[in-house]
Design a protein around this nucleic acid. Structure first.
Lengths: 151, 151
DNA sequence: ATCGAACAGTTCAACTGTTGAACTATTAAT
DNA sequence: ATTAATAGTTCAACAGTTGAACTGTTCGAT
């Protein structure tokens, strides 16, 4: 790629990534804040999609310390949205899963978010948005690979 | 767009947007956390790019309450990175600008971030990344329009 | 078989960022 | 002139985060 353009592309990318992220977070918050914070929703989403996981899994996925996860899980646990189950074979491990109440609340908020996202992306031609998501997923893979190189 | 695909696109979009954002934030933090938090950097960036602005401008741009901006600005002010100047015509208004020290620190951290972003996007063919950023900017405009409809 | 290292998770203090209400100071409106 | 509105700050309360210290458990090398 010629150097003449790459700085401009980098700056455009930084600006648009920042702006879209801020606005998307703000729309999601508007939609769900009466029920959950955004981070609480993302936590429920991860556990729901994977079925059951540990604090360490979440810490790795969200790239934060385990103690940050403990704090989030404690709040969800106190509200009866998450259950903790000790592994009987390795008693250090605690499995996290959604309670029925947690699952119900998650599905409700996730549906609102999906409707929101659909209202945005349905403005595009299917081919354009598919190409966009394909490139976005490639970028994600590049980030994952770079992360693993660090370890 | 046919309904059969749109749910899948929505889910892929939600997943990849979340994952890229988390990882990007984490890389940036790794790069600059010895000097600034990410939010502090974004604050300096906005003020630097626009030259001079008010707390209210920042609150609108970042979609948070003005008191959240006061807290961030206080920390940057105490470190001598930002200066406050009262408007002599309308003495309610306070203009924020970077001090030389603030500008120097900002340029240093911004360069590190630009190098990071460049290392990611230079993996792509120029045409693909340009198309990606074009669509991303369209999406940004859709979010801006939707935001304005709410007001 | 034991004992020290490694691991999973928690607790705690300290910090950043956020909200929303109450407040100060100033300007605008009628 | 009095009332409204505006710009910004302060404060208490909360969510999220870090990093160190801790508990309890398992693994591994001798």
């Amino acid at each position: 790629m010629p150097d003449s353009n790459i700085n401009e592309l980098v700056n455009r990318f930084i600006a648009v990534q920042f702006s879209v992220t801020k606005k998307a977070e703000s729309f999601i918050k508007e939609e769900i804040s009466s029920d959950l914070t955004n981070d609480q929703h993302y936590t429920l989403r991860y556990i729901h999609n994977i079925g059951s996981c540990t604090s360490s899994d979440l810490a790795e996925e969200f790239e934060v310390n385990k103690s940050a996860i403990t704090a989030i899980i404690n709040r969800l646990f106190e509200r009866g949205l998450i259950q903790r189950t000790r592994d009987e074979k390795d008693r250090r491990v605690v499995y996290l899963a959604l309670t029925p109440k947690g699952k119900e609340l998650f599905l409700k908020t996730e549906e609102r978010i999906a409707n929101l996202v659909e209202s945005f992306i349905s403005s595009f031609e299917q081919e354009e948005i598919e190409q966009f998501i394909n490139t976005y997923e490639k970028l994600n893979q590049i980030l994952i690979d770079k992360k693993q190189l660090e370890e």
